[in-house]
């Protein structure tokens, strides 16, 4: 007969694993949030923080957040999938956002979007094979005066024409190459 005892309370281990899955800074932020009487209300803020660091939300990190904030994982996943801003897949080095707001649309943003998809060989929400570019459509960047606009990381390119797309992509591809060399 086996004499091994089953440990019933593994809470300490689970919490340690959760802390290890995140950076100390994020863990400290979560602990700060738990001081509020409405702890759960901080979930979206915490997810922003996690995505801000890792670029996306992995299953492991969402689990960790659930443990540390003491909310069900199903609720974390529910929130993460509801809001457009959260990504569940890693993104490419450069995030390309095409504004499809009304002002950009009437000024021909669709043609820019088509050209970008054609040049990169991917659709919206996808990342190129070399992990260099991710493409997404955004709703109004609030720079309607420059319509149609494309945003790469946080740099806005206004008054775009389909013809300018290849050169723009080329510029970033070259930048990445030079960074690699250096």
């Amino acid at each position: 007969m086996s004499t091994t005892t089953t440990k019933i309370d593994n809470r300490a281990e689970v919490l340690d694993a959760a802390r290890a899955a995140l950076t100390p800074e994020i863990v400290a932020f979560i602990e700060e949030c738990t001081a509020d009487e409405h702890v759960h209300s901080h979930l979206i803020r915490v997810l922003h923080k996690v995505q801000g660091h890792y670029g996306y939300l992995s299953a492991e990190q969402m689990d960790a957040v659930a443990q540390l904030l003491q909310v069900p994982t199903s609720r974390v996943t529910g929130v993460a999938t509801f809001y457009h801003f959260f990504r569940l897949e890693p993104r490419g080095k450069y995030m390309l956002s095409v504004c499809l707001g009304t002002a950009c649309y009437v000024k021909g943003a669709e043609r820019i979007a088509d050209k970008l998809q054609e040049e990169l060989g991917i659709h919206f929400g996808e990342t190129t094979k070399d992990k260099l570019f991710s493409l997404e459509a955004t709703r109004c960047l609030g720079t309607c005066g420059l319509a149609p606009v494309v945003m790469i990381e946080d740099k806005v390119y206004g008054g775009m024409e389909p013809d300018q797309v290849p050169a723009l992509i080329g510029k970033y591809a070259k930048m990445a190459q030079e960074e690699k060399k250096a």
């Binding site: 759960h40 803020r45 809001y83």
Partner: peptide, 22 residues
């Protein structure tokens, strides 16, 4: 409190849910 890209959150009861972390 930050939104996270959901147009419907401009509606007041949806906005309240979002602040509550839902």
């Amino acid at each position: 409190r930050l939104g996270a890209g959901a147009f419907v959150c401009g509606e007041e009861t949806a906005l309240i849910h979002s602040i509550e972390g839902e």
